[in-house]
């Protein structure tokens, strides 16, 4: 009963928030609704019994990725509304819906073939986090290490790409720099 209520509440809120993310003209609104939608998606994971996945979703998505986005937004002008030239949006909507439908049919077809056996079955006696840990560090050890190397490469790439010429101003108009300089001179 509670599961049903939670499912419908979470799904309605998530769909609404992600619609705001996709449709909004303001970067701040889009980012805030994206963060809220990700929190609600971790709620889905908790309903489904994937406790560890839900916690990772909260820490990595809501914590790390949204913090990274908000840091990056300090470089861009976030208060200004984004002007976009949207040509032929009806065609885009039709194409998006159609290709999503094709994708869903494609991926849903094998599921209903009833031939799926559990490769790494869950154990009810031990918790989800322990279960995940055992499978991750035995069966998925090599992908885990490769993912670690990938994260290291991404970190180095991020530092090198963003770190160049950090002393220069990013904004086009130099009036803000002049203002800072005049206040410095006044002191």
């Amino acid at each position: 009963m509670y599961e049903t209520i939670a499912f419908y509440l979470f799904s309605a809120l998530t769909i609404g928030l992600f619609l705001i993310t996709v449709m909004s003209k303001n970067v701040l609104y889009a980012m805030t609704s994206l963060a809220a939608g990700m929190v609600l998606i971790s709620g889905f994971f908790f309903i489904l019994g994937a406790d560890f996945l839900g916690v990772v979703q909260l820490i990595v998505y809501v914590g790390a990725i949204m913090a990274l986005y908000s840091f990056a937004m300090m470089f861009f002008d976030a208060t200004r509304d984004i002007k976009e030239r949207n040509t032929n949006s009806a065609l885009v909507f039709a194409l998006g819906g159609l290709s999503a439908l094709v994708l869903v049919l494609m991926f849903a077809a094998p599921i209903y073939s009833e031939n799926i056996k559990a490769l790494y079955p869950m154990h009810e006696s031990i918790g989800n986090a322990q279960d995940v840990g055992i499978v991750l560090f035995t069966k998925y050890l090599v992908p885990f290490e490769v993912a670690a190397v990938m994260l290291l490469v991404a970190m180095i790439a991020g530092i090198i790409l963003a770190g160049k010429k950090m002393d220069q101003s990013l904004t086009e108009d130099l009036s803000a720099d002049d203002e800072i300089l005049t206040t410095k001179d006044a002191k």
Binding site: V60, Y61, I65, L68, A147, L151, A154, A157, G158, A162
Partner: peptide, 11 residues
């Protein structure tokens, strides 16, 4: 993958 995509993409 999403985390590393965001790091490189924002750079």
């Amino acid at each position: 993958i999403a985390a590393s995509e965001v790091a490189v993409g924002l750079g």
